[in-house]
Design a protein around this nucleic acid. Sequence first.
DNA 1: GTGAAAGCGCTAACAG
DNA 2: CTGTTAGCGCTTTCAC
Lengths: 342, 342
Amino acid sequence: MSAPKLSDIAKRAGVSAAAVSIVLNHNETKRVGLAKRQLILKIAKELGYTQNVLAKALVERRTRLLGLMVPLRDPIFFNQFIAQALSGIQSTLSSRGYNLLVYSPSGRPGRATRDQILESKFTDGLIFINTRLCAPREISQTIHELDEAKIKFVMINSYYGRELIDYVGVDDFAIGEAAGFHLLARGHKSIAFLSGSQHLPTNLQLVQGMRRAFSDSGVELPESRIGYTEYQQPTAFMVLDRWFASKRDRPTAVFVGDDQLLNHLYDYVEARNLKSPSDIAILARGNAGFISMLRPQPTAFAIPTFQMGEVAAARLIDSIENPSHRRTRILLPFQFMPGQTT
Amino acid sequence: MSAPKLSDIAKRAGVSAAAVSIVLNHNETKRVGLAKRQLILKIAKELGYTQNVLAKALVERRTRLLGLMVPLRDPIFFNQFIAQALSGIQSTLSSRGYNLLVYSPSGRPGRATRDQILESKFTDGLIFINTRLCAPREISQTIHELDEAKIKFVMINSYYGRELIDYVGVDDFAIGEAAGFHLLARGHKSIAFLSGSQHLPTNLQLVQGMRRAFSDSGVELPESRIGYTEYQQPTAFMVLDRWFASKRDRPTAVFVGDDQLLNHLYDYVEARNLKSPSDIAILARGNAGFISMLRPQPTAFAIPTFQMGEVAAARLIDSIENPSHRRTRILLPFQFMPGQTT
DNA sequence: GTGAAAGCGCTAACAG
DNA sequence: CTGTTAGCGCTTTCAC
């Protein structure tokens, strides 16, 4: 015997399948008389009836499923940032009755997006968590494809393009500025910035923010003081060695663009037997969870990753359920976490 | 215009929807003549046709979706163990063309399972990751409900019940035994076991394993040397203080049942200013990832969590795709990780 | 070879 | 108030 369906109940109760559907879905309906209603309910229970969500979704044109898309080579669940964002997403989803469909990377890199858009018919909308693997151009193209296919979506993290989309991120310019002011206030004049990739929009924002902070102070942030590590530890070490080669001219403070870079910097400090903040002040930008686990505790600007997930999911659901939804770009405030390294 | 469907293509091509379906699905079919086939393909591309997975799933009775069920109060993605298992699961899924549906906890604790079984119609099967919140009785009941509903599933972690199910875990008895032998070999005679909850099957297995190892040696593991902490740090401290109260009678080595307990023990060692291994040898059981991040590096038996996820997902997919699948209980071997604490 | 018809399980609109 | 009808978009038989 396969699972009982509406028509099975209907047969036994001597009514039409439609009647059963109404009784089961609209709890207190008056469409069906009390006697029949109770009979139907009773039989449904006897048979252990459960809906076929698939059939229901087909006709209702909604699944209450949200798709997750994360361009990342490594397993996404290992990534602290993603884990936090996912937790925030989950929090929203469970309160609003949605579930999350995690797409497995298809392997074929190029066709991934298109294929997954295809698959997305399973979902009412898509959540993109951008990573540093996302080139602005690709993101932009994805956006156009999604819009063309009329697929609702929201993006989290590092999108600075021109298209107006539902986006939740953090104000990196403001972080850069705050970092600049913080270091100025501590009396630093020779400041460096450890960055990932040159073309990463986040890094651009941070640099611009810092320069803005410095603008009235006479302090500068020359290109030579911006280190591009490409997220390679050896490269990071090279950059740092260059900066620290001359005792006289070395920076007194380094601002670090993200968790992984911070890790490299900590490795370096340990390897070269430096002390922070005495030899070098360290100011970081990163995930609260990650940062609070480090020893010594870095002074840092924490990104509200959990909240980003929460808000993004909420925006997406709003846009799904409310047709007159207007797209918004939301920049969440960062949080200053005092530590021992500045 | 809503998304183009089979019949749209059919109309334009002057054929029936069925023909289009055949062409699109069975790549090299001979059912349809070459000319028509190419026409259909061309029109499909022009229209930007994409399948409606939902409709397809309804008729094919399979979604290529696997559901994930994790009974855990906190956000599951924060949990190292789960994250690792998920990564393993993902790895299998992406190579076999499945996707993962993460159910959001419904809030209502009691009805959760039933509701989720209902929802599971979306999926071809369910993956359960048991946590220490899972009482054996509940697990057992879940199993019966699933079987009754003819839902395929696999369980990961801490199931020691009688029902024959697809299960992937780690051989805790063997770990306990190996732990016992390891400590004996190091000359310890006074050994304690720091455990979570008394009724946790895992802990039972570990204790039995240790006792088996000790059986010919004269060393004992009395109840007084088993500390139940209920995963509370204060309780752990109480237990440890009791053990360490008398200088003469204190244990020389402690075996720790899992990551969280190990954390408590490390806290304790730091708080009481002890040194390991000189004051106290520490032997742990836990996740490779977590353990390798600790300083000092604990000597430990690592649980192959990633692999557990991988294998479990593979088993589940096998059982879905192969009707004559036979249920198996798989116990994965642990891995010894030498460290600095024994 | 080809196309038409039936049906997956459900719901909303429509007559009675 | 009640029940019947017509689809949702797709696939697979089955006749032609």
